[in-house]
């Protein structure tokens, strides 16, 4: 698994990290069931605060890509690779819609209509 962050970018670091992690999971490395390296090690290597990285972990946990097991660390969920793809599509939909001027309520209505 490769993670990279650009400290000079305007995009917040935790968002960059969440995006990188999501892309890595979507590509199958780390695979389902695999344990992520300790957040402290990764944060140190990347020169970011450990809380920034944990915030990215939390985002992916909320998206159902990661789960935290007591005593075992942070694990990639079984459905993560597939899920990561849908999360990406959803993010793309939201970004594109906002760009073309849709409000969040309109985007919700759009999705509801499809269900």
């Amino acid at each position: 698994m490769l993670l990279r962050v650009d400290l000079g970018s305007t995009q917040p670091l935790h968002e960059q990290l969440a995006g990188q992690l999501r892309a890595a999971i979507a590509s199958g490395d780390p695979a389902a069931g695999e344990k992520l390296p300790p957040a402290r090690d990764l944060a140190e290597s990347l020169g970011v605060n450990v809380h920034t990285l944990l915030r990215a972990f939390k985002t992916l946990r909320d998206e159902g890509l990661l789960e935290v097991r007591r005593g075992r660390g942070t694990i990639v969920t079984d459905a993560a690779a597939q899920q990561a793809h849908f999360v990406d599509l959803a993010r793309e939909l939201v970004t594109e819609s906002r760009r073309s001027g849709l409000t969040d309520d309109e985007i919700r209505a759009l999705l509801e209509a499809q269900l």
Binding site: M1, L2, R4, V5, D6, L7, G8, P37, L46
Partner: peptide, 13 residues
């Protein structure tokens, strides 16, 4: 290709 402001880490088990 790494920019001056870019940091990267690779990890595998």
């Amino acid at each position: 290709a790494l920019d001056a402001d870019e940091h990267a880490v690779w990890s595998a088990r």
